[in-house]
Design a protein around this nucleic acid. Structure first.
Length: 574
DNA sequence: GCCGTTTTCGGCCCGACTGTTTTCAGTCG
């Protein structure tokens, strides 16, 4: 069994943590963490890169040594350095670092004095009041650790989906905006970078009186507990468990602070290094030459002072965007406004919650130039999938409705099921009549990688296969993606002119940002679709656009930006 | 351990808050 990139990254993270507890060179520790970040962000399996003899040191934060270590992991499944440090440091100690307020120093001290290795051991020692005896610890710390353990047990670290984060973030933003003296509030962090999930929320407030803002924050009704409360920075946990960090700055520093709190961390580190290279210093208050503040009120000015174009938050991951900004080569990212229509939507003909007419009205209200009606094929029985006869009946209704409307073009279609053996659940003569054929996997999600790959490759051979719907069938936080050789399938899709979907349902976001990047690299075109099952689902479009932007997609990469004539031509020619 | 428009050594982002201290280390982001 070959290790996935994620598994390899986790090995390096664990190695870093154990070395940190073992008080090894902190820069070496950081080097392993940096390498883990790089590995996680790769869209191509390391196993394949190693097999093909690709020079891994071309990637950032991977040098000769780590490249060799990666090769060893790929070949043996083991990281010898990890086995080696595990002889000195019990590997279970790494888990203790997940307790809020406990870092490497604390873990080492606790282990050295009490010989404890588990969460249970720690809890017992704290309850018995023994932890406070330790130098550097005290009663408050002891209580905080017990609270941290409770928190960890209650909520095993799961990230919050962007759409769910929005529901709590926007009301809080409004609340803080209403505080006297507040000029501006932005939600920064991974939320602003439009990541599919967020670990916490970072709110930035421009104001003259930070203490007033912090006082208002801790009085917010929806708070479960206050973790820290300072004059310019506080951390709270909202009911429901989402952590919120709020930072107050003066307007003159807002841009620099927004830059800093938007991240990603690696992007910040790279920017700060760029500042240092120019004899400057970048922090959340501004870009400084000695005492002189060169830029700070506006993000654009900070980037410009570093000889960079402003970088959209979605690209700030230290994946080459800084070099691109320096060379004026940043992509013109696709926008919601550029999307003219939707090619995947359901009605009450199958499992949609609203009628054909209602869905069409909703699309018109949103200014779509075209809408494809793609109810399920017969295999999806629970969704009342369409038999060939029912589909033919629907085609007549869609055509009749289209005839009556002159502000939108209705396209006929179907979301066809890719069956376990790679055949489709409607016959070719029916598919041949449709404007849009979306092909998706809904069942048999646990086939082996080989079987899953063959299944999709076979389906792709069907000449009517136009759009590959939610390709990995994942449900964020609930169902893992199917196991499939995505690269091989995307290559086949590109070859056959099959378009790959970014399904904009917030629980799916499938393809993901990284996989969409891979699809573009393989030469595929994308289609961003809402997969709407009711009218308000059309508003999910922006979540799909977010992921396309994170993938670096331009309008030209996305077929929904075509006008209807070009779209028809493109879909017919394949 | 990585990195390099000051390139094979000598750096490595920077600041706020907390608790334990008595001037600061640890943790976090």
């Amino acid at each position: 069994m070959q290790s996935s990139n994620q598994e390899i990254a986790n090995l390096f993270r664990r190695l870093a943590t154990l070395l940190e507890i073992d008080e090894q060179n902190p820069f070496r520790v950081r080097a392993y963490r940096n390498a883990a970040e790089t590995i996680e962000a790769l869209s191509v399996p390391l196993a394949r890169l190693v097999d093909e003899g690709v020079d891994l040191t071309e990637y950032p934060h991977i040098g000769r040594e780590i490249a060799q270590m990666i090769a060893t992991v790929v070949e043996t499944g083991h990281l010898p350095a990890l086995d080696e440090v595990a002889r000195r440091v019990p590997p279970e100690l790494a888990d203790l670092m997940d307790v809020r307020g406990l870092g490497a120093k604390g873990v080492k001290a606790l282990h050295d004095h009490f010989n404890l290795t588990s969460l249970d051991d720690l809890e017992r020692a704290a309850r018995e009041g023994r932890v406070r005896e330790l130098s550097g610890f005290g009663p408050r710390k002891e209580e905080a650790l017990l609270e941290g353990i409770r928190e960890l047990r209650a909520r095993p670290h799961q990230r919050t989906r962007g759409v769910d984060a929005e529901r709590v973030a926007e009301p809080l933003r409004e609340y803080l905006t209403a505080v006297a003296g507040v000029e501006r509030v932005e939600i920064a962090g991974s939320y602003r970078r439009r990541c599919e999930t967020v670990g916490d929320l970072d709110l930035l407030v421009a104001c003259s009186d930070g203490e007033a803002v912090m006082a208002a924050l801790v009085a917010y009704p929806d708070i479960e507990r206050v973790v820290s409360h300072g004059a310019t920075r506080s951390t709270v946990v909202l009911a429901g468990g989402l952590q919120v960090d709020v930072r107050a700055v003066e307007a003159g520093s807002f841009g620099a602070a927004l830059l800093y709190f938007t991240g990603a961390k690696q992007h910040n580190v790279a920017l700060r290094q760029r500042a240092v290279d120019r004899g400057l210093k970048l922090n959340e208050y501004g870009l400084f030459e000695g005492e002189r503040n060169l830029a700070g009120a506006d993000e654009v000015d900070v980037y410009r002072a570093l000889d960079l174009a402003w970088i959209p938050p979605e690209l700030r991951e230290d994946h080459g965007e800084i070099d691109a900004a320096a060379e004026g080569m940043l992509p013109a990212l696709i926008t919601v406004e550029a999307v003219r229509g939707n090619l995947h939507a359901h009605t009450t003909w199958s499992d949609g919650k609203q009628s054909l007419e209602e869905m069409v009205d909703a699309a018109r209200a949103r200014g779509y130039e075209y809408l494809a009606i793609t109810d399920h094929g017969p295999a999806v029985r629970v969704a009342n999938g369409l038999t060939p006869d029912r589909l033919r009946a629907q085609l007549d209704e869609v055509a009749a409705l289209d005839e009556r409307l002159d502000d939108i073009t209705l396209l006929t279609g179907c979301e066809v099921d890719i069956l376990a053996d790679g055949t489709l659940d409607l016959p070719d003569d029916v598919l041949a009549r449709l404007d849009v054929v979306v092909c998706s996997i809904h069942y048999h999600l646990r086939q082996s990688r080989e079987a899953q790959t063959e299944r999709v490759l076979r389906a792709l051979d069907n000449p009517h296969f136009m759009i590959w719907g939610h390709p990995t069938a994942r449900d964020i936080n609930r169902r893992a993606p199917i196991d499939i050789d995505l690269e091989r399938c995307l290559a086949a899709a590109a070859e056959r002119g099959v378009v790959v979907e970014i399904n904009a349902q917030p629980k799916r976001l499938d393809l993901s940002d990284r996989n969409a990047r891979l699809a573009l690299d393989m030469g595929c075109r994308l289609s961003i679709n809402t997969d709407a099952h009711r009218d308000i689902h059309f508003d999910f479009l922006r979540f799909g656009v977010d992921q396309a932007r994170r993938a670096g997609a331009t309008a030209a990469d996305v077929i929904n930006t075509l006008d209807v004539a070009d779209l028809r031509r493109m879909l017919r020619s394949g």
